[in-house]
């Protein structure tokens, strides 16, 4: 237990250092997640409209999620080199997968009769999407976003390996230097961030009408 206490003491004594890496971590998460949302939701809305594209996208999404997070970050290295932006590319590539899969499935699962009824009322495809399919699919889409955020918080720890910022710098550096207090001081804020984000997002998900459960195929990073 003493290591843990030492870690807490380190955390308090070096709060500037921890805060600096925590901020780097948050930057990675926010930039990657916003970029993922901006790409994944429009892309999946387009994909749903064409059966063949939809199948390809779902297949890619499912296969992509079997690729380890470390491998995705490693693949960003030969493409962009070391640093912040290669890390963002790797995190982004992983963050879009759960959002795409859930958005496509969510829109897919909207009752066909509802869509037919709306079409009977003379709604255009676009109107049906905006006022029927998207609102009904929202809890499922949000569950994907939540998975994606928790996943990115965990994966951002690995950005350090390709020269990115974040709490990984403390943990990995600490492991290399056998400095357990530093390791624990770097591990605690990220663990709390992931747990906190998941709990608060699951509350919002339940408010939107979802079940707020954990999608266990993807959330661990």
């Amino acid at each position: 237990m003493s290591d843990f206490v030492e870690g807490l003491i380190y955390l308090v004594e070096n709060s500037d250092e921890v805060l600096y890496h925590f901020r780097g971590h948050l930057e990675l998460v926010v930039v990657a997640e916003l970029a993922a949302l901006a790409f994944a939701i429009p892309a999946s809305i387009l994909a749903v409209r064409h059966d063949r594209i939809k199948k390809v996208v779902l297949g890619l999404g499912n296969v992509g999620q079997t690729i380890p997070t470390l491998a995705i970050l490693a693949l960003a290295l030969p493409l962009l080199g070391l640093g912040f932006w290669p890390s963002i590319l790797g995190l982004w590539a992983y963050a879009i997968l759960p959002i795409i899969v859930n958005t496509v499935k969510g829109i897919e699962n909207v009752d066909e009769e509802m869509v037919e009824a709306a079409r009977g009322m003379g709604m255009t495809d676009w109107e049906i999407l905006r006022s029927i399919q998207l609102p009904l699919a929202l809890p499922v889409i949000f569950a994907g976003v939540r998975t994606s955020i928790v996943l990115v918080i965990g994966t951002a720890y690995l950005a350090m390996f390709i020269g990115g910022p974040g709490l990984g710098v403390m943990v990995v550096g600490g492991i290399q230097a056998y400095d357990w207090a530093q390791v624990i001081a770097g591990a605690i804020p990220g663990a709390l961030l992931a747990i906190g984000a998941d709990l608060s997002l699951s509350r919002i998900e339940r408010y939107l009408g979802g079940d707020g459960g954990i999608d266990d195929t993807t959330v661990a990073a």
Binding site: G154, G168, V183, I184, A191, A194
Partner: peptide, 16 residues
């Protein structure tokens, strides 16, 4: 909750 803890952080907590 266990599952949301990042793995590198968990390794860090377990190594000691």
């Amino acid at each position: 909750v266990m599952m949301t803890v990042p793995s590198i952080a968990l390794f860090g907590l377990l190594i000691p």
